[in-house]
Computed example of a mutant assay.
Amino acid sequence: MRWISRLSVGALCITLAACTSSPTGRQQLTLYSDEQLNQMGQQAYEQYQQELPTVGGATHRYAECVASALVTELPERQRAQNWQISVFEDDSANAFALPGGYMGINTGLLKIATNQDQLAAVIGHEIAHVLANHANERVSTQSATQLGLSVLQSSAGIQNEQMLGLLGAGAQYGILLPFSRRHESEADVIGLNLMADAGFDPRASLTLWDNMSEASGGQPPVWMSTHPSHGQRISGLQTGMNEAVARYQRAHDAGKRPNCSQPV
């Protein structure tokens, strides 16, 4: 059909114009500039700060100590950013890192990540999302998907609301959610090596996700989730553990031994 050809050509043009590779060599669609992504990150960070109170003192120093050790291991261009971290008073076990060097963790996470190595696993994972341009890839995919659905609707003359709903669900579960699961798995691999290079024990990541599994209770089916199941996540970490442990041992031999004091 003619509209399929036009849609395919348009998608190919976008892909050729904005195709990059992640740190693991995976092809990515990135339509936005670093400046645009950094601005998005700043806006999201400021909104988070407006909505939740921050925690200072020993708790903030602890988080900053772990984050600083990880940032030291970043490639020069990313390391040069003005990285900053905030601890937010919130019981949910959440953390994030945003383009532009903005990081945050919730106090609820500190009840699950019970030592510096487990906390490094979380922060390293979040920094890995930034290193791999996942935010750019995610918003680019969403933009391209919405464009494709609009072209499909207008070209095929689809007006039936049920059919449009099915198309939207197909895009959500067939493109956007699996894409996010791929991001999570990739960030696990990159973050595992990052924490090991900084001198944190990567084996603590397995304990962390066991803790997460116990705390989270039931989960939605994997195909409806933006994250891999805990079993899938632990399996992926175990696959890369031998290399990570070797990197950790080299880091220790080089004198990288973080000693971040936990708040009492």
Rank of each mutant, 00 (worst) to 15 (best):
M1C: 13
W3P: 03
I4G: 07
R6E: 15
S8D: 11
G10A: 15
T15I: 15
A18N: 09
C19N: 13
C19V: 07
T20K: 10
T20G: 10
S21M: 14
S21V: 12
S22T: 04
P23F: 09
P23I: 07
Q28K: 10
Q28G: 03
Q28E: 14
S33Q: 14
L52A: 07
E64W: 10
C65S: 02
A67H: 04
S68N: 07
L70T: 01
L74W: 02
L74F: 07
L74K: 03
E76F: 09
R77F: 14
A80I: 08
Q81E: 13
Q81S: 08
W83Y: 04
W83S: 02
I85R: 02
S86K: 06
V87K: 00
F88Y: 04
D90K: 01
S92P: 02
L98P: 00
G100N: 05
G101F: 02
Y102S: 01
G108I: 01
G108H: 01
A113W: 00
N115E: 06
Q118I: 00
Q118M: 06
A121H: 02
H125M: 04
I127M: 10
V130H: 04
L131E: 10
A135Y: 12
N136S: 14
E137H: 12
E137Q: 15
R138D: 14
R138S: 04
S140M: 10
T141Q: 13
Q142C: 07
A144M: 11
L147D: 14
G148C: 11
S154Q: 15
G157Q: 11
Q159C: 13
E161S: 14
Q162A: 11
L164A: 09
G168D: 11
I175K: 05
L176H: 10
L177Y: 06
F179C: 09
F179R: 06
S180A: 08
E184F: 06
S185M: 13
S185C: 13
A187R: 00
A187L: 06
V189N: 03
I190P: 01
G191M: 05
G191S: 10
N193R: 12
L194Y: 05
L194H: 00
M195A: 06
D197E: 11
A198Q: 01
G199N: 03
D201W: 05
P202S: 06
R203H: 08
A204F: 07
S205H: 00
S205P: 01
S205Q: 02
L206N: 04
L208K: 00
D210L: 05
G218C: 14
G218Y: 14
Q219Y: 13
P221H: 11
V222Q: 09
T226G: 04
H230F: 11
H230L: 08
Q232P: 04
R233T: 02
I234M: 10
S235R: 15
Q238G: 08
Q238D: 13
T239R: 15
G240I: 03
Y248L: 05
Q249V: 05
R250S: 10
A254C: 02
G255K: 05
G255E: 11
G255A: 02
